[in-house]
Structures are given as structure tokens and as C-alpha cells.
Design a protein around this nucleic acid. Structure first.
Lengths: 177, 177
DNA sequence: AGGAGTTCATGACCTTTGTCAAAAATAGAG
DNA sequence: CTCTATTTTTGACAAAGGTCATGAACTCCT
């Protein structure tokens, strides 16, 4: 079972509520709101960020054929500080949590699938933690480049630099050396 | 259902294999090894770290009555770079994954408990990610102090500084101001 | 294809945090 | 309880990365 199978399951079980189009720079979720939807990105790209003082800190990106969720709000069903913004004009299929969870609890195998997804999320977050703990900006860059080379084709350096906990200038200088 | 209930369940279902004592500075797990055990700390304290170049980067602490796991290796059942070291002389109950997972799959409610635990882990990791993305060392310190004040009673500043992605000198200066 | 709006590259400079060293305070072992 | 090892504090200094400014390159829109 992998993400594209999950999409197929969502499709065949009629879990998609609607399709939304978000203009470049518009927000799908704002800080302080609850958002328990699952978004499947048909086209375009999104980022999730939190505000840290004057700055925005990017937590995650999503691009074509990815699933993106405001994970904290999805899991807790409480307001979260996460913001979801379109990096370019984006079209998403919207899957409400309620229907998805009913589907997950229909059958023990679905529940085991959900366990598998959660385990993968924990592992991803551990990798992210290791990235962020890496002291050298160059190594942070190289770790993420190795793991997600596609990211660098999809997302501008400005946003990647932010995700990598450095300025665009630093990333630019790094790529030359 | 909360962590202490989990301990009770582990107890009543005879999932504890043995009790281990680890001397101060000794290792429970070394880099490159597989370790799928769950450790319940009866007494003492442990840290999990990864090596980043010349430095060790602390990922997590455990102290009395905590559960500590080499989470990546536990989930993947593959070798991981995590190291578990005793900060002081420590006694742990050892729960093998196999028995625990059999217990989890015995009954749908146990499986739902496991789902809950995994969801909590994801949420914890998201908080950790926000901590690490915070640019100002002072705010990183304050965020963690607020969330886990007990940490500062249990663990030396040297290790906390490392966990907070700063030097002990920086943490020392921060606490004065 | 042209032009506005972004993004990227590059240089000069500055601030913050790390490094090193040494003394003071604290904790652990016998 | 005392001795020893470790941790914490403090100061002087260095360096890495951030900030700011500017021009070049790229994108997107119509």
C-alpha cells in the first residue's frame, strides 16, 4: 500500500467532497483556524508554514499528485497556527476527515493501513528533525537534496532556503561552491 | 488512555522480558544497530542522540517513569544511527516489540490505542519541528521550558543546550538575561 | 513578444553565536 | 565526607551566517 493506492481508494469510495482552485499567494488555511481536510493536489503547489516573529518558517511543501494536510489540526481537531498558502495557482480535491475516518474504521485492514500511514509520518518527522539538527547549512542542503531532489525542480530557492533554515543568499552561495 | 495506563497494561499482560541496569555513560544502543525494544525507565535518565560530524545532537531524553524507544529502528526494524546512552546509572524494564505488537493486534481496541499513540507521536514531532525552526535561541529555550519544565530539573544544561541547538555558553547567558 | 513583477546572484558590512580558556560551583564515587 | 571529575559561568575573540542594496535573470500574463 502506497500513496497512489490511497488516492485510488479515496476515489473509488467517493470520499472527495469537491474540487477547489486557489490563486497564487491565496490561503487555503489561515493561522488560528481548524482545518481537518485532506487535500489532494491535482495541479500547482502549496506550502505549509508557521509564523516565527517577523518571519515565516516553512514546514512542508506539496506539489502535483501529493497529499497535503494541516497535520496538527487534522489530528487534534483544534485550531492550529499552520498556514497553507498556494505558491502558484493550484487545484485540489478536498476530502473531509469525517468520511475518511468512517472509511478507515469500516474494516480492520483499513485501520492497519492508517497505522502504516501514521508510522510513515513519524519516520518522516524524525528525518526532518535530523535535518534541522544538522549544524552546517551545506549539509542540511545536501541531506534534503539527496532525499527529495524533485523538490528543487518544483519549488523556488527562496522557499527552499526558508525550509532549510537559512536565507536565500546563503543557499545561493552554497549552490555555487 | 494515557502513558501510565499503558505501563499498567504492559505489566498485567506480562510483556516485560527483563530488567537491565546501565552504568552512567554506557550505551543501551549504538549507531548502526537495530533495536526494537521498548524501555520503561524505573530509575535514572537516558538520552537519544545522533552524530553530526564531530558533534552529538540530542533528539530526546527519558527519565524516571518515562518510556523511551529508538523510534526509527522500532518502526522500521532496520539499523538506525540513533544512540541511546545513560546520563546517569539507569534501570529499565525491557519490553520486546514482538510481544507488544501481538498484544496490540489481539483486539481492535488495542489497535485503536496504538493509533492514538502514533497520532500523539506525530503531534509531538510537529512541536519539535516548530521548536527547531524558531530562529531565536532565547525563544527556543522558552518554548521548551514552557512545555517541559521538568526537563530542566532532570537534565544538565549541557545536554539541554545541545537539544536546543545551541552551546552551553549560549544557554548559560540566556538564563541570566 | 513586451513589460511588470519575482527571484537570484553578488558584494560590503554587521550581528549573533560559536570557540577557546580559565575560574567557580556542583555532583558523583569511594 | 572528602576528593575528583564534571558542569557552569564568564570574558575575550573569531567566524559563520544574516542583512541590506543593487543589478541581472527569469516568469508569467495578456
Amino acid at each position: 500500500m502506497n500513496p497512489s493506492d490511497l488516492i485510488a481508494l479515496i476515489e473509488t469510495n467517493h470520499l472527495v467532497e469537491k474540487v477547489l482552485t486557489i490563486e497564487r499567494n491565496a490561503f487555503l488555511k489561515t493561522a488560528g483556524s481548524i482545518d481537518t481536510h485532506i487535500y489532494f493536489i491535482e495541479e500547482g503547489s502549496l506550502r505549509v508554514f508557521v509564523v516565527d516573529g517577523e518571519e515565516e518558517r516553512t514546514i512542508r511543501f506539496g506539489y502535483q499528485n501529493n497529499i497535503l494536510v494541516s497535520l496538527d489540526s487534522f489530528l487534534t481537531e483544534k485550531p492550529s497556527e499552520f498556514v497553507i498558502q498556494a505558491i502558484k495557482k493550484t487545484r485540489v480535491r478536498v476530502i473531509p476527515k469525517k468520511g475518511f475516518m468512517e472509511f478507515i474504521h469500516q474494516d480492520e485492514n483499513h485501520l492497519k493501513l492508517w497505522v502504516k500511514i501514521l508510522e510513515d509520518l513519524v519516520i518522516q518527522q524524525i528525518e526532518r528533525e535530523k535535518d534541522l539538527l544538522t549544524a552546517s547549512p551545506k549539509e542540511r542542503f545536501e541531506r534534503v537534496l539527496k532525499r527529495s531532489p524533485i523538490l528543487f525542480q518544483e519549488i523556488s530557492n527562496r522557499h527552499i532556503a526558508n525550509y532549510l533554515r537559512m536565507t536565500p543568499e546563503t543557499l545561493s552561495r552554497l549552490k555555487k561552491s
